[in-house]
Design a binder for these strands. Structure first.
Lengths: 207, 207
DNA sequence: GGTAGAATACCTACTGGACGGTATGCGGCC
DNA sequence: GGCCGCATACCGTCCAGTAGGTATTCTACC
């Protein structure tokens, strides 16, 4: 047990360092040397836990699927939950190295296409689920194609994040997220539902 | 003159091959060997025209700025022009290897940050210019923040394109573009202007 | 319009270094 | 004492870039 704890600690250190390096350099440009140096770990230790660079990258990508699956609705209103999810994701991108690294690896399509498609699909599914609940609640425009809207929102969030990163190092990410909702919501929800929504970021603690 | 023609041909062949390989593999994973092999050119020829891998990548990125600057308005209506620009860009992504490679290099932020920021800024500026003309024409919602909307649209198009590529190899890109406009336009333009717009792709040849 | 010579355009062979991965050994906890 | 967890030294490969030679085409002059 005690030694398992130590092993887990080094494993986590490697994962974290890998996420950081993948985030900064991308998969191909990242070197194992930099990862193990930053983790304060030797090559033997790293390759004991991960058999290859690719396996390590896959483990980092997994970390972000984990983040999404821990997300719990924050409101009775599905659309409000979706908005909150966007802001939560923005803050994860700012604070959580694992999410950052994972997103970079997902965006850089390359050797491993399947996990990336899964990531997009996962986000699209969550979005779609919320939108379908919103439609049942009568919040959405009647003719709206829910699947199409979910695809657009997922893609738009991806792109917003990317352009924010390139232009300002993600400093204006939260503002851009607000801009996105401001622009998109009128095409999504009916006016009476729009009035009940908080487009700006909500501080947690209220229902 | 005749020798310039030959040199220009090989230079173009190298640029094209480079764009393809960068598009398929990304900057770091792309190898000069594959580029010169695909171009049917030897190493000496390549390094005569481009002094380094980075210079070659920058030349590919330039090609896309060139594409954007050759774009000419297609309609009296600025918003309709913006929609058409989106579709034109989608088809360029499907057909023009230079645009494809350039976009991949722009999305993969890495060693050269400045040209990428310039690319985003260029798109954002064009979009913003069209939106400002639309506002002067009274087409937009009165309170709309034009700069913010331009940023969102640029980012959204980027993301749409990315997710379409990962999920379907860009097969559904045009449809996703239509979904984007359907969702965004109600938050952008006033109803009376919306009625005059063609959200679906227009075949060229009519005013 | 033919030729000398000088750029221009390109070819081949090579190099130094870095990188992912491995083999083997060793200490400490059960 | 045995295995888990790690450390170290090493290997084969591949890659960006270069050195130096060769072919091709333009210019100049006759």
């Amino acid at each position: 047990m005690a030694r398992q704890a130590r092993a887990l600690a080094t494993r986590q250190a490697v994962l974290l360092a890998a996420a950081e390096v993948f985030d900064e350099r991308g998969y191909a440009a990242a070197t194992m040397s930099e990862i193990l140096e930053r983790a304060g770990v030797t090559k033997g230790a790293l390759y004991f836990h991960f058999r290859s660079k690719e396996e390590l990258a896959l483990a980092v990508i997994e970390g972000q699927g984990a983040w999404l699956s821990t997300w719990r609705p924050t409101s009775e209103s599905p659309v409000q939950t979706l908005i909150d999810l966007g802001y939560a994701f923005a803050h994860a991108l700012l604070d959580d190295p694992m999410v950052r690294g994972s997103i970079r690896l997902t965006i850089e399509h390359g050797s491993f296409t399947q996990p990336q498609a899964d990531t997009y699909q996962g986000w699209s599914d969550v979005t779609r689920g919320l939108l379908e609940r919103a439609r049942e609640a009568g919040d959405l425009h009647p003719g709206l194609d829910v699947a199409a809207a979910a695809g657009v929102i997922t893609g738009a969030v991806t792109g917003i994040q990317l352009s924010s990163q390139v232009l300002t190092g993600r400093q204006d990410l939260v503002r851009r997220m607000a801009d996105l909702w401001t622009l998109i919501l009128p095409g999504l929800v009916q006016p009476h539902a729009l009035a009940r929504l908080s487009v700006a970021e909500r501080v947690p603690g209220r229902s």
